[in-house]
Design a protein around this nucleic acid. Structure first.
Lengths: 262, 262
DNA sequence: GATCATTAAAATCTCGAGAAAATATATTGA
DNA sequence: TCAATATATTTTCTCGAGATTTTAATGATC
């Protein structure tokens, strides 16, 4: 992609043009992303571990003992340690020197923080995308919205095994919206925060099915974006993201208990 | 610290109160921070490597060969790999599967991105701090400003070996300003971005001495903050950060050439 | 019964060596 | 001279075992 264009107009930012990105630009998110072919055992273990943490296989706060996990993931101790270290980058695992690793704990305050920071970054990125996005970006948004719509239709019809698919396409849609933002750093941080919120969403939706018309929200967001109405689009996006926060807030309090295990 | 308070008032954010942080809250930035005693060999190598990268000992884009570096840092290959992996978290090192590690490249576009994203996050955090900060926060700001002032005085008098000290206190001042922000995530991202910009600043200041009255800028920022004038404080902070961007922009173009080395 | 020191067990951290892959060099043919 | 292939070298990746530290268990003392 390697897009680099001027930022969207905000009162606080000086209006100087950004130069083109250098050819040596490198992806900020490290190699082993979702659904990318793992090139090494470390990346493979990293991907599987990440999925398991996000899906709640390893409970929040749980201790991750290398000697036990090397069986499950079928790699050596050193390799598993490296995978764990990679997960520290995503803040899904916390490492304490000489005391090993554990799954990052969850709390309602943390999710609130994640959500609001995500709003801050994602609306800014959307503003930039709407201001600078070209035809390629538009096409990407249209395609992602189409795929998401199909998944949501299928979800409404027969809801078996399609949530995984929906999750992937929902993420793709949100990333397509901000793909033209020009700020690799905002996209990078957004990526991390989205991943974090996905963890909360997965474990919460598991117990309490969604009761809102998400498709309508996406539709409105899509239309405002294509109409290049930055004010309306960011407003809808904000409400959209905050609504998930409200849903999670209504979860029983014991949902946020972390596994201590000494 | 573990402060968790409502966000500063922004039109786009709903005005709901944040609950208190849970006692299980964990630091987002991983253990081995600046000037913290390393508890393991990995952390020690990580700290030294990070310092060397920020100071430009290892040039941007340079390949980091484990077999060579293990001599310099006096640790085993596996240990050094782990340290390198930790640096990926800070985006100071990039890892490509089966092709080793290299120092993250630099470019004028990247620094522009870093700076503007930093403005976005740091002004928001400052707004929150001014809105929610208590006496502890005020005291911290006063103390940090005092220490910074002394360092800047010393820098103006006899400028030998005090830049290191100034760098540390400048960072401490900026972090003290946003310490009461309540958003661990914003502080976390700010931390990463500050580190990134420090790398640019170090290599640029090395060639071209500063020609601006930084102390006056800090003074104004300090006074506006203590007066709880969020609008003025964020405005000064924005100008303050952007001014460094302008300085770096005036560097010769060849300054941003990365070491390819195949 | 509770607190503290001592001992035993478990886990983490660290290293060096071998396997796999990538890069550099040499060779061959057009 | 250039391109393509084959070989040699370097580098990365992976594993298991030993050293160090943390954690749990046991026993002694108040």
């Amino acid at each position: 992609m390697r897009i680099s264009q001027p930022f969207g107009s905000r009162a606080t930012m000086s209006e100087t043009a950004l130069p083109q990105a250098t050819p040596t630009q490198v992806a900020l998110t490290h190699g082993a992303d979702f659904h990318e072919e793992p090139k090494t055992l470390v990346e493979g273990a990293y991907q599987r571990l990440r999925r398991d943490i996000i899906e709640g296989v390893h409970a929040p706060g749980e201790k991750l003992r290398v000697e036990h996990l090397k069986e499950r993931y079928d790699v050596g101790a050193g390799t598993l340690r490296e995978a764990l270290l990679l997960l520290v980058t995503d803040a899904l695992v916390v490492a304490q020197g000489q005391r090993g690793f554990r799954v990052a704990p969850i709390s309602i305050a943390d999710f609130e923080d994640i959500t609001r920071t995500r709003v801050l970054l994602e609306t800014e990125a959307l503003r930039q995308s709407i201001a600078c996005g070209g035809e390629d970006w538009e096409a990407g948004v249209v395609a992602a919205f189409h795929r998401l719509s199909r998944a949501e239709q299928r979800l409404a019809d027969h809801d078996v095994g399609t949530t995984q698919e929906w999750e992937i396409r929902n993420r793709a849609f949100h990333e397509a919206l901000i793909a033209a933002s020009g700020s690799r750093w905002i996209r990078h941080f957004q990526h991390i925060l989205y991943q974090q919120s996905e963890r909360y969403r997965r474990i919460s939706l598991f117990r309490q099915p969604i009761a809102r018309d998400i498709h309508a929200e996406h539709q409105a967001l899509f239309e405002a974006t294509m109409a290049r109405d930055a004010t309306r689009a960011t407003s809808i996006l904000t409400e959209h993201i905050l609504r998930t926060l409200d849903a999670v807030k209504r979860m029983p309090a014991d949902f946020f208990t972390n596994r201590s295990m000494r």
